[in-house]
């Protein structure tokens, strides 16, 4: 059953009582919360996702709940519980949904060493995938959101999940996390897309989530072959450029920014070696989203750059 098959009222009742079993890519999460903003954003942004039953196996059992005690009246807060344990300090209640998103990332990144998990966005077309690493502030999420609204399938905007063994990318297809200016840029670029509530004053400034396309959610069991690793960088008024990048340096960057490279030890090295060896690595500078989309639609399949 899809999330959208439940009325918002029914959804929020379930979420509050026994919790929902939400499937996102290869993971099923048992989520409970009585916080209205969590229910509202979940039912809006995950409406195409599958709900499983309580008879299924859940990878993670999580709960978001308000802090108790006097403070709840003058400074309401949200807590995250992972199967009865509380690994993080509470956040202001207004950040409840962003907290849900990053704690789910935390669950995945910390309990899934059967995968190599890179801190990167990933998108796919015709079975071939682009991995977009890059530090925050480089326009990675904006580019990922833009491409996913122009024919590319969203695999993930934050966690590129590679299956050890065949090194296929597994889709997560969860809402895209947009920050500050990107929020308005994407509202204009994709007027049809659905956006969640904007949370102000988080550690990262303003945060809002964009709903992934129905197609990428429906196809979230369909793996993709990593083919390009591209470090994007938005530079205003700069000419578009795609330049080859050192493979060894790409290796080190991806390893240092991976969530679990060092936890995998030798397996991590071997996986990364295979990944880097089989991908074309580029630096990419852009100042215009439409031009960037055009460039992505003609990415070279051999190590040469067409002018």
């Amino acid at each position: 059953m899809k999330v959208s098959e439940l009325s918002p009222a029914e959804f929020s009742k379930r979420l509050k009582r026994r919790g929902i079993y939400l499937k996102t890519g290869p993971f099923i999460s048992h989520i409970r919360s009585s916080i209205p903003a969590v229910a509202r954003n979940l039912s809006l942004l995950y409406s195409d996702h599958q709900l499983m039953t309580s008879e299924d196996f859940a990878d993670f059992h999580i709960e978001l709940f308000r802090s108790r005690g006097l403070r709840r009246w003058y400074r309401p807060q949200v807590n995250f519980s992972f199967d009865g344990h509380i690994p993080f300090k509470p956040l202001p209640l207004a950040q409840a949904f962003p907290m849900f998103e990053w704690t789910l990332n935390w669950c995945i990144a910390n309990h899934s060493n059967q995968y190599l998990i890179l801190h990167a966005a990933a998108i796919e077309k015709d079975g071939l995938a682009v991995i977009l690493p890059a530090p925050p502030g480089t326009g990675k999420s904006t580019l990922c959101a833009g491409l996913s609204s122009r024919g590319w399938r969203l695999l993930s905007d934050e966690l590129a999940i590679l299956r050890l063994g065949d090194m296929k990318l597994l889709p997560l297809a969860r809402p895209i996390n947009l920050k500050n200016d990107s929020i308005d840029i994407m509202r204009q670029y994709t007027p049809d897309a659905t956006f969640g509530q904007t949370s102000h004053d988080t550690a990262k400034g303003d945060v809002a989530h964009m709903k992934p396309s129905t197609d990428s959610v429906i196809r979230s069991d369909e793996t993709a072959t990593p083919t390009w690793i591209i470090f994007p960088k938005y530079v205003a008024n700069e000419n578009i450029s795609l330049t080859l990048r050192s493979k060894a340096q790409t290796f080190i960057y991806a390893a240092e920014n991976a969530f679990n490279y060092s936890a995998l030890g030798l397996k991590g090295f071997q996986a990364m070696e295979h990944l880097i060896d089989s991908c074309h690595c580029y630096d990419f500078i852009y100042s215009d989203l439409d031009q960037a989309v055009e460039q992505f639609n003609s990415l070279p399949l051999s190590e040469e750059i067409t002018p």
């Binding site: 050192s246 493979k247 060894a248 340096q249 290796f251 080190i252 390893a255 490279y261 060092s262 030890g265 030798l266 090295f269 071997q270 070696e273 880097i276 060896d277």
Partner: peptide, 22 residues
């Protein structure tokens, strides 16, 4: 030590420390 060389650069993994060096 485990190596991989691309062009004039290599990455090397040390099985003890688990560190990878460029």
């Amino acid at each position: 030590l485990l190596w991989h060389t691309w062009d004039d650069e290599s990455v090397v993994y040390h099985t003890g420390s688990g560190d990878t060096h460029l």
